[in-house]
Design a protein around this nucleic acid. Sequence first.
DNA 1: GTAGGGTTAG
Length: 633
Amino acid sequence: MKTIFRSITPVKLLRSSISLATQPLSLNPSTLIDDFTKFCNQRDLPKAINALGRLQNHGIRADAITYSELIKLCVSKGAIKEGKIIHNHLYSNGNEPAVFLNNVLLNMYVKFNSLDKARLLLDQMRERNVVSWTTMISAFSKAKLNEEALRYLVLMYREGVMPNMYTYSSVLKACDGLETLRLLHCGIIKSGLDSDVFVRSALIDIYSKWGELDNGLLVFNEMITRDLIVWNSIIGGLAQNDKGDEALNMFKGMKRAGFPAGQATLTSVLRACTGLVLLELGRQVHAHVVKSEEDLILYNALLDMYCKCGSLEDADSVFQRMANKDVISWSTMIAGLAQNGQTLKALKLFDSMKDSGIAPNSITILGVLFACSHAGLVEDGLYCFRSMKRLFGIEPGREHYGCMVDLLGRAGKLDEAVQFIHGMEIQPDAVTWRTLLGACKVHKNVEIAIYVAKEVLKLDPQDEGTYILLSNIYANANRWEDAGEVRRNMRDQRVKKEPGCSWIEDNKQVHLFVAGDNSHPNIDKIKTELNLLIKKLSGMGYVPDTNFVLYDLEGEQKEDSLRYHSEKLAIVFGLMNLPKEKPLRIMKNLRFCGDCHTFAKLVSKAESRHIVIRDPVRFHHFKNGVCSCGDYW
DNA sequence: GTAGGGTTAG
């Protein structure tokens, strides 16, 4: 008895006698700790915090592991207040917990999204190790505070703490460009940490995000042991960089390596299908995923795939059945309807979205404006644009302005569109002007077109289409000198020409047709069939429209290059090979030329086929001689 | 003991 009393300081004795009055429990320190430990183990937060209060009153400490477990319990329950009580307790009486517990506290504030509190704590800590720094860096990186993440990496270096694989795998995401990325990669290799799978998957991912897929592939190919996430990184990287076919090949490789596809994998596979318009493969993925639990991201990708493969019925049925829908699900569906020419349904869906209590974001509004512009709903579009900030708190961005230029231009209000661009709060870019140029073309306004084309070329001197258009305009007006100058400028700028190509899926195979390329095995047969078809259509009044051809070709040669545009070859291939009841679904890399558009309309009538062609911006559903775009595109 | 990588809409 005596010895026990002697071991307690007078202050502590005083405290315990006070607490005795309010909390008539055990006085014995070991019993108090036992109580505390017991409640922590039982994950009984209120009782544990109560017991902690008694420890506090008696100036007693439990062991670090128990505290750490209790803090984790707070995190899992979102108990911020309790977490702070523990923090105060650990810092009471001028104590500072060991770095391990400090790290647990740091992590707690991070999980509570209190980055400022975490930052303060880190500043205050006497000892900071690699875990402390990594906790902060990872938090900044996840919160997309990239500058802060990189800044803390530097602070860490300056303090003489070296990053490890945990640090690198989380800081890589925060790279602000290729230069930083290369520096980090060097550091990783020098420290021998590049054998870590986490670091590797982060490297693959970030290289592909910065458009250096080859470096990502290099990292991937050097790996001896790969896990599911590394496969996902490379497949996702390929899919996001429009290398759908390579992504699908990689997916095959992954299956060969014995990995079952996870939801993230299938999301990327769907993205690849979307990019390649592989509706049938997309359907197979769908059939595969309906068996598992509904994953929102995956289902959103499914929606997008159906929309972008021009199958609105499938998209709608998925959308109707989805138990949870977020702003992306709604925006995908609204944009999908709009792009497929179903304007009124798109606007109706926007109303339903608002009714359902999901707040639209800037991308949702973009879909709505797109719908208005493609249906000539000038007033509705203007209203939406003018009220987006007031109603939804969304500032119009460059793309919203672009949609408005399109809206005015399409409606033939070309002067107003020019005025609108001059009044924009954001500097117009080449895309803005090019949008208006397209409208000038449709409405055949030469005067404005010349002005607009010059604006485009000021901002993008490499734009092939604009040179050609401008020189065609001059040539048609017999202004040969001007046309010649445009041609010279084009040569001086070494404008690159992107070859037009189209592709179509048949029996799980993609058939690609590139302008001027005869490598398809059946190309001769296809060309023969195409010529027969053109003859048949000529009987219906089809005359090739040569205005859409390059200026340096003449007469018959002009018509010949037009004759074999890749979308025509793809259409004929589809007619020859796909069953009559199936719509022809064709994808192309460039915008439609007017001649091919007319051609497709006539074919849909002459052959009674439903033809769906996707250009880089929208869809054209050809049925019975009419296109869903209403001949505006 | 505490810190880490991949997936969706324009």
